[in-house]
Simulated assay, not measured.
Amino acid sequence: MILILKHQATDDQIDHVLRRVEAMGLKHHLSRGTHRTIVGIIGDEEQLREEPLKAIPGVAQVVPVLPPYKLASLDAHPEPSVIEISGVKVGGGHLGMIAGPCSVEDRDRMFRIAERVVASGANLFRGGAFKPRTSPYAFQGLGEDGLKLLREVGDKFGVPVVTEVTDPRLVELVAQYADMLQVGARNMQNFALLTEVGKSHRPVLLKRGMSATVTDLLMCAEYILSQGNANVVLCERGVKSFDPATRNLFDVAAVPLVHGLSHLPIIVDPSHATGRPDLIPACAMAGLAAGADGVHIEVHDCPEEAKSDGPQALLPDQYDELAAQMKSLAGLLGKTISPLAAK
């Protein structure tokens, strides 16, 4: 921790700062510059964060040296983490390709879509059984019946399934059926939910909140990691912007930024980031080129009949074409699309 003192800090104030640091059982290093005086503090930063250091007279700024997300940082784990979801690897050069409809719908449709996306190269199938919707009158999902159907699809095609959990009370139920638990953007800072999915030890897909910073995202991952669950995959799905041309602003820079701060894998979701099928292919490729560890794309065989988010879904043929392009790009980048485990 570094304390930057005010330009007009007196000698008595500086001495008081040093005494306060010593009283906490910590060491200090005083550096007097031409324009600034700096106090470097050596010791447990967790203890320092509990102290109101900026309230000490003469202190202008408190600057942490280490990030607050201890377990998610590269300091804790210098090598990229590889997360395994029922045999499918994500991270460390292995790409996770998630595809499927926004919501779990009727059985025949789910089987048709799963068959197409798996044939195209998807190695994780997605679909929401519990849907947090802006309107209370919108389709809220099929609940446990949807989970059962999703599990049936996963078993039929030998593909791991990922679905959203919206409530701490539902974690145990969803974990019975899903290979991976998704925490959606609206729930990114639902700390009770993060704690429960951390206790479940199921792999977790954590989506960035629509108004969240990268630090916010990593701190939420820290909640999950702190419960002993190291299997976290981050997801950049766009943040709110003033421009209505796209659903959200696709922050592709977040991908290399996260890799420079954390060992956790991060995938991109151009479906929610743009909300426009015509922009999804370019943004998916841009995400991979920026270093993403996978791509999350919504696919539906008849978007006009979709229960939710139909306008932003790709058709199976469109996904097939994009999947081929992503596979070629992965080869150029020296990465592999993790294969499905043999049945």
Rank of each mutant, 00 (worst) to 15 (best):
D269R: 03
V258I: 14
Q182F: 06
G184N: 03
P270W: 03
L225F: 12
E196I: 01
L225T: 11
G228H: 12
S271N: 09
V153T: 03
F250A: 15
M180H: 10
R208Y: 14
N229D: 07
N190A: 02
V255P: 05
V171Q: 02
Q176G: 11
D179S: 07
L194H: 11
L206Y: 01
T215I: 14
V159N: 01
H201N: 14
D216H: 12
L225C: 05
N248G: 06
V183G: 01
V255E: 05
H201F: 11
V162M: 00
V183Q: 02
R202T: 12
R202Q: 11
G184F: 01
F191V: 06
Q227G: 12
G209E: 07
V214D: 02
L194R: 08
A212H: 05
A212M: 12
L194C: 13
V174N: 04
R186M: 00
S211H: 13
H272D: 08
A254K: 02
C235S: 10
V233F: 07
G260Q: 15
D251F: 07
Y177E: 09
V183M: 02
Q189L: 08
Y223F: 15
V161R: 00
S200V: 12
R247N: 11
T274P: 01
G198D: 02
D269L: 05
L264W: 04
M210R: 10
F157M: 08
G209V: 05
E196F: 01
P244I: 07
H272I: 08
T246E: 07
V165K: 01
G154W: 00
L261N: 11
S262G: 08
V258T: 09
T215W: 11
I224T: 09
D155F: 03
G158E: 05
V153H: 01
K207I: 14
M180L: 08
G158R: 02
Q182P: 13
P160G: 03
S262F: 01
F191R: 09
F157H: 09
Q182D: 06
V258H: 02
V162Q: 02
G209M: 06
A230M: 13
S226V: 11
A192G: 15
R237G: 03
H259P: 02
L170P: 09
M219A: 13
A192D: 14
P244A: 04
S226K: 09
S200R: 08
N187Q: 10
I224A: 07
P168A: 04
V171G: 00
Q182S: 08
V159L: 00
I224V: 15
A192S: 15
T246S: 13
D216S: 12
D251G: 04
D243T: 08
D216R: 10
Y223N: 13
V258N: 02
P265C: 12
L170S: 06
L234R: 07
R247H: 12
C220L: 04
T274D: 03
D251M: 07
G228V: 13
P203S: 10
A192T: 15
N231Q: 14
T213C: 04
T213D: 11
E172A: 13
V174Q: 05
S271A: 11
L249E: 13
M180R: 04
A254G: 08
V162P: 00
A175W: 00
H201W: 12
F242M: 02
